[in-house]
Nucleic acid binder design. Structure first.
Lengths: 196, 196
DNA sequence: ATACTTTCTTAACCCAAGTCAATGAATAGG
DNA sequence: CCTATTCATTGACTTGGGTTAAGAAAGTAT
């Protein structure tokens, strides 16, 4: 199985790896496979691991009156850094697999050991963290300023894959609207495409 | 002038300070006064300082077609950690004073020097950062799940002071609605209070 | 005080999203 | 293969926010 190469590919996006580094990553890394609907983290649990999605799709959500409120979708090469993992506090969210997934899990000590050995990776880790927080901020900005239809259009433009692999009612929840509304929005967009 | 004591008060919330620490904070700290409408940070600038509001009110906003989109209000004892300060990248936002302000400004080297001398403050800094990020997340959750009226009700409940010191049209922008709508919401709330 | 600016409110109209209910389409399980 | 469930669409209706425009109220300056 060559699932180990996913992680090497991931880091290669940012940096050129030496042979030694490749070997260490292959040895150190723990890669697990999950079934659809497997739960990575439950509300109330304290996360002992962070994740990197190598293949598949994960949703982060919480329950309100038994309803799932979806906060985020993670797909290929998206890192997942649960607040619970960072703070050592009970998680406010669930993480569960929407598809069969291949996921690399990180622990604190392993990361620390890794960064100690290859300090040149530190700025990359920082950069990844920064860009995550910037993305969150942008999402909030859009949410405040764009009406539901524009939010959907933006999602279509920026993450077109999501719309094809995720059920619409989850997309609706993610966009903060009802499934019926999303259905009508799609219809509206479709008819405007034909005769402008 | 005893403005120096603001900062001592701030840390005392979290930890009991020794006399030496109090002295150091008083010596090290730079406290500045600002006029209403003074700008702490402009879009495009790289922030060289972070802030702690000791007195007054600061807004964070950006411009869209010349319109202010308000993202956050900072008041007494709110720390301001601009993304631009953390990442050394041009700021996406403005920071400006809504009132005459007394603000403590922090620089990287000063913070580092301070934490080196008093490492027991490190967990406090981390905790403050965590709680900031948690607050942001909660705000987004509410924004997605609550209609404008409920958002305003929640603001009334959690930050009642804001509504009294900040112009309504800014509150409206912060809540992602038009000033006219906020006006109607207030009217609606008012009349429901009278005859239930 | 007066004039001027800024801020807040009201009204009228439109339209998009929420809600409830029914029907179709797609999927999963046996 | 058929059935049962889940998911998506559509319709009728209500509601609440956006928009435009006007005017009232509050704050500033002269």
């Amino acid at each position: 199985m060559d699932t180990e190469n996913f992680l090497v590919d991931y880091f290669s996006q940012y940096i050129t790896l030496s042979e030694e580094e490749v070997q260490l990553i292959k040895n150190e890394d723990i890669i697990r496979k999950y079934e659809k609907n497997d739960i990575l983290l439950r509300e109330g649990q304290i996360a002992k691991e962070c994740f990197l999605v190598l293949k598949g799709c994960v949703k982060r959500y919480y329950l309100e009156d038994g309803e799932e409120r979806i906060m985020e979708f993670y797909t290929e090469y998206d890192p997942i850094n649960p607040a619970s993992y960072v703070n050592k506090e009970p998680s406010e969210y669930y993480l569960s697999c929407l598809e069969p997934c291949i996921i690399s899990t990180g622990t604190e000590e392993r990361t620390q050991r890794f960064l100690q050995k290859f300090p040149r990776f530190i700025p990359i880790f920082v950069k990844i963290g920064d860009s995550l927080s910037a993305k969150k901020q942008m999402f909030l900005d859009d949410f405040k300023n764009l009406p539901p239809e524009d939010r959907y259009q933006k999602l279509l433009a920026t993450r077109p894959d999501l719309v094809n692999r995720v059920p619409q009612y989850m997309i609706a929840s993610y966009l903060g609207i009802q499934p019926e509304s999303l259905s009508r929005i799609r219809k509206r967009i479709w008819s405007n495409r034909k005769e402008p």
